[in-house]
Nucleic acid binder design. Structure first.
Lengths: 152, 152
DNA sequence: ACAAATAACTTGCTAAATGCAAGTGATATT
DNA sequence: AATATCACTTGCATTTAGCAAGTTATTTGT
């Protein structure tokens, strides 16, 4: 097999490049679960409110790993489990997620946890620093102050 | 016809809401063309390097208008033309675009115009202020310092 | 005035992606 | 040993994307 050449880009515009990697309805939700909720496993992702299908989840995890946004490691205590983690490249998407969240809360009806939003708005820089700090510590507890998003 | 109820959201998470509106490979490119390149018409969008198809473009323009990100006005000098403009809600996506561009230039091979990137990095706030200022003036000249993206 | 060109779409058709249900294989638990 | 759990695959129906061609309302050129 002659090593399939990766499909050529539509254009070299940086926004286009980002969209070819992240421009779908699911990838950033998986990244959210890793970044904010402290999820680590396939099963946890499946449990998110949006209800991703198993085949789509498997496909996205594969693509995200292929482009270096997440990494896999076997669970030391249960060999059935795979632990997914954000790489540096992955955690560096925090500003993108933040801006998308702030935009939505400004213009749409959302069930955003008010404590989290206040934190983001009040001091964006510090919030991002906290996200990164927690990532360095390998934190797997959700960053959401008041716990889980209970709305709907 | 019983007024089709708008399809219910997968979840109320603000990130999910943003993705249901913007999570595809084309919408943000159209917004880029309006925000950064000063495009106004259907034909100009069609000319962008990524090569959007006519039916997709028509569909996205309709959806972006439906959710208040762009507005339409007839051209005063040519009644065949429709001028598309970003609304406030639309121009407020500038931080999202900026972060996506900065992330891509940091981690991927892109043909980003160096002058624009330097501007974004050096003083994010000022860059965003300029984008908004230009929008208020109804500016239709590209914001890219060195002119058009010539790479590839 | 008339023919040709242009702007903004539609329509039809094919290919690819998504969504759902069910199944598989390797551990782990009881 | 039997059952459960975890991380996937597979099959199939539905939806969305992509491409080529056609349509309608102007506008431009002669």
């Amino acid at each position: 097999m002659p090593a399939k050449s990766k499909p050529t880009r539509r254009s070299a515009c940086p926004l286009n490049v980002s969209l070819e990697i992240l421009g779908d309805r699911w990838s950033l939700l998986i990244i959210r679960d890793l970044m904010i909720r402290g999820f680590r496993t396939y099963k946890e992702f499946l449990g998110s409110d949006e209800g991703i299908a198993t085949n789509i989840l498997a496909d996205r995890l594969q693509k995200l790993e292929a482009c270096g946004i997440i990494s896999l490691q076997p669970d030391p205590t249960d060999r059935r489990k795979v632990n997914y983690r954000l790489t540096k490249k992955g955690i560096d998407l925090a500003p993108v997620l933040t801006e998308l969240v702030l935009w939505a809360t400004r213009y749409e009806d959302t069930g955003a946890p008010p404590a989290l939003i206040r934190k983001m708005q009040k001091n964006r820089k510090q919030f991002l620093a906290e996200v990164r700090q927690r990532w360095r510590n390998g934190g797997s507890s959700p960053i959401i102050p008041g716990g889980r998003d209970r709305s709907e």
